[in-house]
Amino acid sequence: MRIECPFCGERDHSEFAYLGDAGCARPAPGAADAQARFVEAVYLRENPAGAHRELWYHEFGCRSWVQVTRDTRTHEILEVRLAGASAAP
């Protein structure tokens, strides 16, 4: 699999470290139900058959966290962008 790093260009996936579902934003820590929300954010993952937004870290490249949209059925990569740019909920 090859991932088009927004900074470095197209690279083999072995340069990247995988984290997982990019949809799990960190919940507000002060909320009344914070513990339940954190359990959901930390442990519950979407696992769609199809397009999936996920976080990868270009560890052997520019050390950017990138958000990859990948089709889990074909490994086709539909979009890659710097993760920070989309971090705001």
Partner: peptide
């Protein structure tokens, strides 16, 4: 060392840019 660097980079870039 590597894991902590990755953790900090995630916090800086993704959680609190």
């Amino acid at each position: 060392a590597g894991r902590v660097m990755r953790h900090l980079a995630h916090a800086r870039q993704v959680l609190w840019p």
